[in-house]
Each structure stands twice: as structure tokens, then as C-alpha cells.
């Protein structure tokens, strides 16, 4: 690990000021990803600003939404009574990720900023456009079971590893950020980028901006929502495919509100807008769910190691929505 300076910020303004005072500064949350990347010298910041002392409050808003401080620990969010009741898909997504130890350390802000787990990104003997722009990509012709089937580019087929973020994408979350000239908000679905020819640029956040909170707008349909994760072992593994879904079925048996997002399939948490559009007003049947899944995955491209994920994603969408219709908490 390269040497670095360490400072602890008392509030967002101090954090931003400290970060602006030195180039090549990173904000430090629980460290579960950043410390690991620094140990591998994939990340080499000259200074760290510890932001774990910032707000970790989980607050129910007057409109029925929830505001979560960026320093809230994953465990605290998943255990929060209001999150569990109003947004069960978020609690389930967090609980499907990592281990209890890591969930106790990891912050919401850090989870959003985590880097891909592509093994070639971690291996500095391999070519990786995300690590060294223009170097090439060893994943395309290599071990790509865990890689993207949607929105990938010739430059990068890595996936975003978060479970929590898949729920945030489905729930139309809003990210609150603070920068040197003040605060702003971003729609969560615009926060992460597709790789294009610059996979090293992963988010819409400027280097001197800090995530301070995540806001969940009210969504009554989210009371019936869940998260289903398919993986190579039943616990403590990254997703092959995951589905965050909320579904409201009208009295006549048609789909009312539906929210759908996929994990493990793309460079960013993937909001399944095509499937949602196909479902609006359709009968809440497995045939409709299958047709919606087909629409979403129509443009999917498989690699030798991960083409199976296209059919797996379709089946997981159908099974998750059908489970919600039956009232299951998968």
C-alpha cells in the first residue's frame, strides 16, 4: 500500500474543503472496498478523508419517503423498521450482499462508489481499460462468467457489483451530493455510467464532490417488493443475475405500478424500463412477465462464459414477479 495522509471530517463542508486542499484525495467510508484496492495498489490516493463521522441518520420524510445519511451502515439500513415496511426490496437487497461483518462496516455512500469486482481489474498483470485507459481488455476473451450482457462496450464488459444499488435504481432514488460550490441532487439512474470508450469514468460525480445522503421518494407499491439474487453459492457471493421488483396489481388483474431493475448484468445498476413499459396495463400473468423480460433482454449480448445469463435473467424476472403476485417474500 502506498503511503497516504489521513484526516477525519466533522461535516460535509469540512470533508469537501479537506479534499480540495490536496490533489488525489479519496473519501473513506467503511473501507471494505477502498482499503482492499489500496492494498493491491489499484487505488493509490495521496490522502484519505474519513467521512464515517457524517450523518448516518435514517429519517422518514413528511411525504412518506425516507432520507438515509451516506454514513449509515448497511446493517442499520436493512434493520430499520421504516425501510423494512415501506421498501422491503431495499432491506432484502442489502441482506443479499456481502457478509454480516462487511455489512456492519460498509456505508451507503461507499456502497454506491464501490468498484467492479472484475478479476482483470484487480490483476495488475492483466490488461484493463478501466485501470489503464487504452490498455485493452482481457475479460472479453477470458473468464467472463460474472460479466455484462447489457450495455457493455468493446472497451469494458465489467459489471457493477452492488445489490443495494439495484434496489435504489428500481426505487427512483435521488442522490444528494456536496461540492465546493454547494449541494445538488442527481437521479440515481443517472449516477452511474455505461462504459463506452471511457470505462475508467464510472459515475457522474465530480472528483471533489461527496455523497451526503440518498433519498427514497414515496412509492406505495414498494410495500409489495422484493429482491431476488441468483448466484453460484447460496450466501456471500456476487450476483450472476439479480432482480429488484415492486408490483401493484389492480382489481381487474392488470399491472398497475411496476418497478424493475437488474443486477449483475451491466456496468451500472440496470433499470428495466423496456420491461416496465411492456407491463403497464398488461394482465399480471406469467405470459406477460415473459414477454416483458424478452423485451428487456432483446439487445443482450452474451460472451462465451456468460451467454447463459440472458435466459437466466428472463427466468429470474418472471419468477420474481410471479412470486410477488402470489404474495411470496422470496
Amino acid at each position: 500500500m502506498n503511503p497516504f495522509d489521513y484526516a477525519r471530517a466533522a461535516d460535509p463542508a469540512e470533508a469537501v474543503r479537506l479534499a480540495g486542499a490536496r490533489p488525489n484525495t479519496k473519501f473513506l467510508g467503511g473501507g471494505t472496498n477502498l482499503v482492499d484496492l489500496m492494498r493491491e495498489t489499484i487505488e493509490t490516493p495521496d490522502s484519505l478523508v474519513d467521512v464515517t463521522g457524517l450523518s448516518r441518520r435514517i429519517e422518514v420524510l413528511a411525504d412518506g419517503g425516507i432520507l438515509i445519511g451516506a454514513a449509515a451502515r448497511n446493517t442499520a439500513v436493512a434493520a430499520d423498521p421504516a425501510v423494512r415496511k415501506r421498501f422491503p426490496m431495499l432491506a432484502r437487497a442489502i441482506l443479499a450482499g456481502a457478509s454480516a461483518q462487511i455489512r456492519n462496516m460498509a456505508t451507503v455512500g461507499g456502497n454506491i462508489m464501490q468498484r467492479t469486482r472484475c478479476c482483470y481489474f484487480y490483476d495488475d498483470a492483466a490488461r484493463c481499460n478501466k485501470r489503464v485507459p487504452g490498455a485493452g481488455c482481457d475479460a472479453v476473451g477470458g473468464f467472463n462468467r460474472m460479466h455484462a450482457i447489457l450495455g457493455a462496450s468493446p472497451a469494458c464488459v465489467a459489471t457493477h457489483p452492488s445489490d443495494l444499488c439495484v434496489a435504489l435504481a428500481a426505487l427512483d432514488a435521488v442522490v444528494h451530493v456536496e461540492g465546493p460550490t454547494g449541494g445538488r441532487t442527481l437521479r440515481f439512474i443517472d449516477f452511474h455510467r455505461l462504459p463506452g470508450d471511457r470505462p475508467d469514468i464510472e459515475t457522474a460525480l465530480a472528483a471533489d464532490e461527496l455523497i451526503t445522503a440518498v433519498e427514497l421518494p414515496p412509492l406505495s407499491a414498494a410495500a409489495r417488493s422484493t429482491y431476488r439474487k441468483v448466484r453460484d453459492r447460496s450466501s456471500y457471493a456476487f450476483a450472476l443475475v439479480s432482480v429488484a421488483a415492486a408490483l401493484d396489481v389492480a382489481a381487474d388483474g392488470t399491472v398497475g405500478t411496476v418497478r424493475l431493475a437488474l443486477g449483475g448484468v451491466a456496468h451500472k445498476p440496470w433499470r428495466a424500463a423496456k420491461a416496465e413499459a411492456a407491463l403497464h396495463g398488461a394482465p399480471a400473468t406469467e405470459a406477460s412477465f415473459r414477454a416483458a423480460a424478452e423485451a428487456e433482454l432483446m439487445d443482450a449480448v452474451g460472451l462465451p462464459g456468460n451467454a447463459f445469463k440472458i435466459e437466466l435473467a428472463k427466468r429470474t424476472i418472471v419468477a420474481t414477479l410471479a412470486g410477488l403476485v402470489r404474495g411470496e417474500r422470496s
Partner: peptide, 10 residues
């Protein structure tokens, strides 16, 4: 927690 991923300074 996992002590290996924790910087002591924190």
C-alpha cells in the same frame, strides 16, 4: 467486523 479491511486509524 473484519479487522483486515479496517484501518486502525479509524
Amino acid at each position: 467486523i473484519n479487522a483486515c479491511l479496517a484501518l486502525a486509524v479509524q
